[in-house]
Design a protein around this nucleic acid. Structure first.
Lengths: 119, 119
DNA sequence: GTATGCAGTACCCTTTTGTATACTAGCTGC
DNA sequence: GCAGCTAGTATACAAAAGGGTACTGCATAC
């Protein structure tokens, strides 16, 4: 790797600079990222609260994906220097602009859950 | 794996049976799946043509993700028993119903590419 | 003194993805 | 006959992403 000045970021697709869908997928690439954004849409949330709302996610992964979303400018992280620690995650404007994508996923899923329930 | 009658499908989320977004993500979970669906939206496509349109994907992965999409009823696979082999992939009705999701991704990405070009 | 909550980090292991190559089957060219 | 073509499949192996759990430091609660 690092053969040239600008290498493909981790998880990015070849041609993601110009293909709109690839560009979006590069940002959403991560098992929990869309769900994190979905949970943050209504209101900001603290780390452990987010963890509780996303059953199945581990601390390690949640931390990693939040950091990645922060790097991409989707999520804002506000640390209050108190004890016990208080860290609040919220969507940036860029993050909120992903709402239509999550909305479309929600709508499709609702239809599936309605028409083809599993349990 | 396969310890019980019905295990969580590969890539599925806990609670995906009822959470709409998880349900959608379970189907779209796979680095290339949304792009495959995106490419198949306008018209059916053969394997190697699909591979050419998705620079960066390997045969192995493309095969695997197509099989998975087929299992989920998103993609139809039509084999013509001729030599050389001719296999055509197309979206099922269920697959086409994902268009709004891909459309939202495309729209968001277009805005990003326009406002924050990389190269 | 022990238990709990917060917001993580460190360690190790499994699954998924990426890369490369060899193989199928019949056809064309030499 | 042998090489190369199409449109894949199968296999092996390495790298990246995901997952489980223990642990930290400080504070309050019992």
């Amino acid at each position: 790797m690092s053969d040239d000045s600008k290498d493909t970021p981790s998880g990015a697709f070849i041609g993601y600079e110009t293909c709109p869908v690839r560009r979006t997928l590069t940002v959403l690439n991560g098992k929990w990222k869309p769900l994190i954004i979905y949970e943050l849409l209504p209101a900001p949330c603290r780390f452990n609260e987010l963890k509780r709302r996303l059953p199945g996610v581990s601390q390690r992964l949640l931390t990693a994906q939040l950091r990645s979303l922060e790097e991409d400018g989707i999520v804002d992280r506000k640390v209050m220097e108190v004890v016990p620690p208080h860290v609040e995650y919220s969507l940036s404007e860029k993050g909120r602009s992903l709402q239509p994508v999550l909305q479309a996923m929600e709508t499709w899923g609702e239809n599936e859950v309605k028409n083809f329930p599993i349990s």
